[in-house]
Write a protein that binds this DNA or RNA. Structure first.
Length: 278
DNA sequence: AAATGAACCTGTTTGC
DNA sequence: TGCAAACAGGTTCATT
């Protein structure tokens, strides 16, 4: 469900609603999500601590606490994960897997039907990222993602450019929606070998990646069916999608000339316009 | 090494 | 209409 813009939307909402509050205790924890969950570890790492800030790296949300212990909470929404705040005593649903009671009784709840999400405790010094993030590619909205970098990473690769930009170790945070959308904006065919794209067109791709993510964040992300931010709000970038989920529709750019096509790449759907993507 | 496919799990949509 | 197959925004592990 959530790619960088959706995760960023959730992070910002959590920062407003939860940062500065103290966690009283872990009141519920399922046996496992993507990985087995150790309630003792999570409880010890969170109970009685004041939440200082929510940071984001790739599609991960990292929770920092307001003390000098060098650890943090790492959260991942998987495909269907979401957070919500509920009043004291509100009943839990089947898929409410992790629940913290905040000071005052409010419940901070992680829900995830498919259980692809993650809640974990990691070591990290203040301002640093956990060691496990070391291999992640640059944040797409930072200057670290630039033409020179991408040319280097693409060099010699026969892999289709769509699967390449989906690789979190090449660029962090792009998912299946924005991979298709960015390639459309850049006019690049998703099946083209990553190592076979001119410098000029890679420059276009870098700009396209940044613009599509920025535009989506400004719209609160994309809701196809599940995505909701903390307050239950949907993201309306769905209205701005050019190709994702639009197989058979006429291309917005070249009009009647071509219709959007759907193909499979590495087991995942890719949408593109055969008319304006080369 | 690089690239693809399967697996994890549940709900919803599509197609015969 | 009914049922089974396909599909869904992600990541990791196994296999070629």
């Amino acid at each position: 469900m959530p790619e960088l813009p959706e995760v960023e939307t959730v992070r910002a909402a959590l920062q407003l609603a939860v940062a500065g509050k103290k966690i009283k205790r872990l009141s519920h924890a399922a046996a496992r999500l993507r990985y087995p969950l150790d309630p003792d570890v999570i409880s010890r790492a969170t109970s009685g601590r004041m939440v200082k800030a929510f940071r984001r790296r790739a599609k991960y949300i990292v929770v920092d606490f307001d003390d000098s212990i060098n650890d943090c909470l790492v959260l991942h929404l998987g495909m269907t994960g979401s957070f919500r705040l509920a009043a004291k005593g509100d009943p839990l649903g089947t898929f409410d897997h992790v629940v913290w009671e905040l000071e005052g009784g409010e419940q901070w709840i992680f829900t995830d039907p498919r259980k692809f999400g993650e809640v974990a405790v990691e070591q990290a010094a203040a301002g640093e990222w956990p060691e496990r993030f070391a291999g992640l590619g640059p944040e797409p909205l930072s200057p670290d993602l630039n033409t020179g970098y991408l040319i280097n990473r693409f060099k010699g690769r026969k892999q289709p450019v769509k699967t390449a930009i989906l690789d979190q170790n090449i660029i962090a945070g792009i998912g299946n929606i924005y991979a298709s959308e960015a390639l459309f904006r850049a006019g690049i065919h998703p099946g083209r070998a990553a190592g076979n794209i001119s410098r000029q067109r890679i420059e276009k791709l870098v700009l396209a990646v940044k613009s599509v993510l920025e535009d989506s964040i400004a719209s609160g992300g994309t809701t196809i069916r599940d995505f909701k931010s903390l307050e239950g709000k949907e993201g309306y970038f769905s209205l701005c999608l050019d190709v994702y989920g639009k197989a058979g529709d006429p291309c917005a750019k070249c009009g009647k000339k071509a219709t959007i096509r759907r193909v499979k790449q590495s087991g995942r759907s890719t949408f593109y316009c055969p008319g304006c993507q080369r």
